Structure formats: structure tokens, C-alpha cells
Computed example of a mutant assay.
Amino acid sequence: MAELDAVRPVRTVGADHVALREQVLTELRRRIVDGEYLEGERLTETRVADDFGVSRNPVREALRVVEAEGFVEILPRRGAVVATLDQTAVRDLFAVREQLETLAAGLAAERAQPPGIAALRTLIHQAAAATTAGDLDRVAELNSAFHRTVIDLSANRWLQSMSAPMYHHVHRVFRTGAAHRAPHSLDEHTRLVDAIEAGDSEEATKAARLHVQAAAKAALAQRPTA
């Protein structure tokens, strides 16, 4: 057994290929979420490889992942294209979001500690400043950070793991309507944090539900029908 161990090749977690694949995946996802690659835009392996200055192998692997995540779909005779978020997709997204966020809000009201609540207040203040400055990309980033923090404060590891992929899509939807939604979202976030700080699980759940429903209504108004 010792002899076999001596000759067995060692594959390290930090291998260059793995690192490059993850870098390509992160950047590809970011470009889709931030709208640099538009809905319906064709993403060939060659095109993306040229954009990133890499070979086609890590691009091929990254495209498989973003397809599984719902950011890309494979169409006959076109290949990979950026998925379109029509009204059906948005409704499905917000239906799941409402269930997860209302649960998280109620748990956060029961479990959050002062440092976590302070972190939420800070994110609201930063978002207000970014809104005033018209920095909508920053507003979208802070919006996602706010909701991820509420999830973290729920101290429920299942919620944390299940919601993580969803927030890439939430960020993508919010970003397109940030100019309209930002001021309303700030007010709704403040109400939610007030309830969490008061330890009022019922009010926090209600605030989260109303917030998600308002966000869904705004998102649907901007989206094409299926």
C-alpha cells in the first residue's frame, strides 16, 4: 500500500486548471448578472474564450454550470444563449424567494444579535447614499448583501445553502429596475430591520412578505410575457 501511495499522482485543490475554471465561471456569471451579456445573446465557446483570453476548455465547463444554474439555455441551431427572464421565470423566482425570505425574517427576529442588526443598518445607510449618488450598480450589490445578511442572521444553515444560488438571479432582476425600486426598497428594508430589532417574528415575516411582493410586482411590469 505504501508503494502505491508513493506513485499515485497527487491532485491538489489549488491546481491551476481548477483555479482558472472557477475564475472563468465567476466572471461569466458576473457578466450575465450585470447585463454585459444581454438576454438572448449567443455565447459560443470561441467567443467567450476570446473575451476572457483563455482556452475553450474552462469556458466549456463554465457554460455547463451556468446552464444548470439557469443563466444560459441551449437552443437548436444557436447553441448557448443568455436565458431570458420572462414573466413566468420571474413569478417562479419570486414564489421561491417569498417562502425563503419570510422564513429567514422570522428566524432573524428570534436569533439576531446587536452586531448583526447594526450590519443591516449600515447596509441601508450605504444603499441610501448610493441611491442619492445614482450609483445603481452599487445599489444592486448592497441590496443583495442586505438580503444575504438577513439569511445569515436566521442562523439556519439550510436556508443559507439553498438561497445562495438564488441571489445571483435576484441581483440580476433587481439591477434592471433599480432606478425605480431603490427608494421603495430602502423604506421596506427599514421596516424589516425595525421588526427584527424588536424581536417581533410575526411583524418581520409580514414585512418580508410585503417587500418581496412589491419587488415581484415591479419586476413583472418590466418583463415580457412567456
Rank of each mutant, 00 (worst) to 15 (best):
A89G: 03
E41P: 00
R77N: 13
L220P: 01
V66L: 06
A145F: 02
D135L: 09
P115K: 12
A6G: 09
V10N: 01
Q160I: 13
A178P: 01
A62D: 07
H168D: 14
T88W: 05
A226L: 10
E67I: 04
S163K: 05
T84L: 11
T149Q: 15
M162N: 03
E197K: 11
V170K: 02
P183D: 12
I117T: 09
E27R: 03
M166W: 13
R175P: 00
G199H: 10
D86L: 04
R175S: 14
A214R: 05
L63A: 11
V173R: 03
V139Q: 09
A105Q: 08
E69R: 11
A119Y: 12
H125G: 05
T205K: 07
V81A: 00
L75T: 06
R148L: 15
K217V: 07
Q126R: 14
A182T: 12
R209V: 03
V212C: 03
P224L: 02
L100R: 04
A195D: 10
T12N: 08
V193L: 08
E69N: 04
A112Y: 04
G79H: 00
A95V: 03
E203H: 10
R42P: 00
I151T: 13
R97M: 08
A215D: 14
G177C: 04
E27W: 01
A95Q: 06
I124C: 06
L159W: 02
N57D: 13
R223F: 01
T88N: 13
A155K: 15
V66T: 04
P183L: 13
D137L: 14
Q126K: 12
Q113H: 05
A119D: 15
M166C: 02
T84W: 00
M1L: 14
Y167A: 02
R64K: 14
L38Q: 12
W158Y: 09
G14C: 08
E45L: 12
R223T: 06
V65D: 03
P9F: 02
D50N: 11
A108Q: 04
A127I: 07
R138A: 15
A130F: 01
T44E: 00
S55I: 14
S201W: 09
A195K: 06
A130M: 01
S55H: 02
R60Q: 11
H211R: 14
A198M: 14
D194Q: 14
A118T: 13
A68R: 15
V65Q: 10
A130I: 08
Q99P: 00
L210Y: 04
S154C: 06
A182R: 09
G53D: 07
R209L: 07
D194G: 04
S144T: 12
D137V: 11
R8N: 03
A128Q: 15
P115V: 13
A178Y: 05
A207H: 02
S161E: 15
H125M: 03
L85I: 14
R77Q: 11
F146H: 12
